[in-house]
């Protein structure tokens, strides 16, 4: 019983971290209508950056975010500008291919620099644990959850309390109409992709501190993140958060109550089952009929 309770708590905490990794994916889908296959790899790049700062220059991973977030922001800016903006026709297919290619290039480069070995980010709060009602929880999970809440809250404020956010939401609702009322959709798109990628740096740091990773981890990650955003409803931020929590709690409970072998399977099976009942995902709008 206690074990199951513990796994629920851990599931919620790591769900927050996954939400932080998935929010970039759902944002760029909502605004750009692009499925960013490179998201998993961007998480890994963020993790490697934090790892490199920590192990070469002894910069604390949390402090290092002040460097890694802007770096990934610029990387996202570059990717959108160079590879996504030129796509005019057939955006669905082409964006999948283009971002897959970007992911492969980054995977190759990370492999060349850091090798195949699994690494993990270290800091004092990664190894320390505190006792909460008889449960030992590694500090990093609490810090990670708090950081996820703060950053997701910041994104929420940006979306709902700023002019940029209003323009962004207008673009999500109707791209053509947004152009017509004078919103610079191109600028919104680039900035959104850059912000989404920047956030991913924080998700990457937390991922790297809670999981051993190498460049190849990106496939595992992108498949999970895609399941999260489709379960939550594509383009919905709240959906991504709720879906992350549901997913990670189920994974952790299955892993404790049944067997870790099948825990990852839950990710995919749960998604497919929900799709049967509710094709638009938990929080997705039913597909509008085009006129």
């Amino acid at each position: 019983m206690n074990l199951v309770f513990g796994s629920v708590v851990l599931g919620i905490l790591s769900g927050g971290i996954y939400a932080l990794m998935a929010v970039g994916l759902t944002l760029s889908f909502g605004v750009l209508e692009v499925i960013n296959i490179a998201q998993g790899m961007l998480v890994v790049v963020g993790a490697y950056l934090s790892f490199a700062l920590e192990s070469y220059w002894h910069i604390d991973p949390l402090l290092g975010l002040l460097i890694t977030i802007p770096t990934l922001f610029l990387l996202g800016f570059g990717i959108e500008w160079a590879f996504l903006r030129p796509l005019k026709q057939d955006r669905v297919a082409l964006s999948i291919l283009v971002t897959y290619a970007v992911a492969l290039i980054l995977e190759g480069l990370m492999g060349l620099w850091f090798g195949d070995n699994f690494v993990a980010i270290h800091a004092w709060y990664v190894d320390a644990a505190i006792n909460v009602f008889g449960l030992y929880i590694a500090d990093i999970y609490l810090i990670g959850f708090a950081l996820a809440i703060v950053l997701l809250g910041a994104v929420y404020l940006l979306l709902y309390r700023s002019k940029f956010g209003a323009a962004l939401r207008a673009t999500v609702q109707n791209r053509e109409a947004a152009v017509l009322i004078g919103i610079d959709v191109q600028r919104i798109s680039t900035l959104t992709f850059a912000i989404a990628t920047g956030l991913t740096a924080a998700g990457g740091m937390l991922f790297g501190a809670t999981t051993a990773f190498n460049a190849n981890s990106m496939l595992d990650l992108i498949s999970r993140l895609l399941m999260i955003i489709i379960l939550g409803g594509m383009g919905s931020m709240g959906g991504a958060l709720v879906a992350s929590l549901i997913m990670l709690v189920s994974v952790d409970v299955v892993s404790v109550a049944y067997t870790p072998t099948w825990s990852t399977f839950v990710f995919f099976a749960l998604t497919v089952v929900v799709m049967v009942v509710r094709p638009q995902g938990l929080f997705g709008a039913p597909p509008a009929r085009k006129v």
């Binding site: 291919l97 290619a101 970007v102 992911a103 492969l104 290039i105 995977e107 190759g108 480069l109 060349l112």
Partner: peptide, 12 residues
């Protein structure tokens, strides 16, 4: 790793 990079670049 170079094979991935070259493949990706070719692709793009």
């Amino acid at each position: 790793g170079w094979d991935l990079v070259l493949f990706g670049v070719l692709f793009l």
